[in-house]
Design a protein around this nucleic acid. Structure first.
Lengths: 255, 255
DNA sequence: CACTATTTGTCCGTATGTATG
DNA sequence: TCATACATACGGACAAATAGT
């Protein structure tokens, strides 16, 4: 048994579930693929043989073979009769999008590396709970928008927001170019403080559709209320994130 | 076509992928199940009929039927000949605690208001990925524990942790009285810094059982790595929270 | 009381995919 | 490569329970 196989089986004893409805060959393929794309298996190194895979993961040789064949079909490995199967993918650790830290400023850094699409932009009367939050009458229209944020054309966040302080001259184009809070600052509203709550929620239909996932999938949920220098609330943001593509990372220091 | 079906299908023609190796019936089952557990489909409401599912999602009636049957086998729905299939799961977003803020100190405040139960406490060899994180050999045993945290006898958090620095004299009782990190401090390990990542994840069986919820329900997930004053990792915490009972709240200030 | 439409329950036959030895 | 067993998915047909006209 070679080092590569040891590496794999140690990380992944018991990952293959014969009781699962997803076929064994695809579970094995998927695991190997993740290891190649994640850099666990190095470029050029030899993959475990069909025999090795079948014994350590307790599947038939045909199942192991199918997994390797599927990898070869995507050019992630190269197979050579009599020699073996070799990794054909160079792993370069791309920085994954996990930008946020504790300070409000840095919330906007992400904005420059990813793309925003504004699905809807209207001035409408808010629902009662939102009006209550802002401490205004629910007769007074607020700027309501729905946006999605993508990284390399893969959408990962769905935003719904209510904002006090935008005037009706605002356009979708400018929102897709500059961060929303920066535009708000330019129109004279200074944000001093924000409160946010992180939670989890099942994907609801419009967000699921926009993010290209199934309704019901677990999403990371963020609600952020931003307050101006006078202490009054100026913004309510409701965001859901696809956890496969975005996670909220932060550093904590003691004292 | 009823409201429920509109809800499900309007944004989601094409979420079921016939090309996927996971069976269609299971894709459909999984989507419906997530919607029930996440509260998208309300308790007592009528599910779409086999016929409706089969036409809107473009699968055979047998496939739709299998999905509903599998839900019924878990008692998530009740089926009645001639009437239909009805949701049999009550989603209650109950009272929520929301204690944590940005600083490491305050993580422990919660500890005094809630109760910890230690399900498991062992010194065992860590899996390779954990050993890698700590930068130690996977032959060296670490203190591994599984705990649940409750508020008024309602469990809301499930913790699994690996710790370097505890000695074998540690007992479950002391862990249930004092916060884990405080005990660690007393045994001479000072934590200087922590990195944590928030995400979302479907409830997996042991956590779901301990938290008294159905597997698959969306949970808030936290991974925290704590580092000592010498910069070396001393703790790895993997936590999942029931979002109905716990949310992660923080304040952000500008400058 | 029929009559009808809807919905689940049960059955058939067939084709294809999965997994084993 | 082959033979075999089982699962998946389709279309269709009919029976039985329910609800409304």
């Amino acid at each position: 048994m070679d080092a590569t196989l040891t590496l794999l089986s140690k990380y992944h004893h018991g990952v293959l579930d014969p009781g699962s409805p997803t076929p064994l060959y695809h579970q094995l393929y998927s695991m190997l693929r993740d290891c190649i794309l994640g850099g666990v298996l190095e470029d050029g190194s030899r993959m475990p043989s069909e025999k090795e895979l079948s014994t350590t993961f307790k599947v038939s040789r045909i199942t192991a073979r199918r997994a390797l064949d599927d990898l070869a079909a995507e050019n992630l490995v190269a197979r050579q009769r009599g020699r073996g199967t070799f990794v054909n993918y160079h792993y370069h650790p791309e920085l994954l999008n996990a930008p946020l830290t504790g300070a409000l400023e840095s919330l906007e850094h992400m904005g420059r590396e990813t793309k925003i699409k504004v699905l809807s932009l209207r001035f409408i009367r808010p629902p009662a709970n939102i009006a209550d939050e802002f401490g205004i009458s629910d007769e007074q229209p607020l700027c309501h928008m729905v946006r999605i944020r993508s990284n390399r054309d893969l959408p990962f966040a769905y935003y719904e927001s209510w904002t006090l302080g935008f005037d009706r001259s605002i356009r979708k184009q400018s929102l897709e170019k500059s961060p929303r809070l920066e535009l708000l600052r330019k129109s004279g509203v200074k944000i001093a403080r924000a409160e946010q709550t992180l939670s989890a929620e099942a994907a609801f239909p419009p967000a699921a559709g926009a993010l290209g996932i199934m309704p019901g999938k677990p999403l990371l949920k963020l609600i952020r209320r931003s307050f101006g220098e006078d202490g009054k609330q100026v913004d309510h943001l409701n965001a859901v994130y696809n956890p496969d593509r975005f996670q909220y990372r932060m550093s904590l220091t003691l004292k």
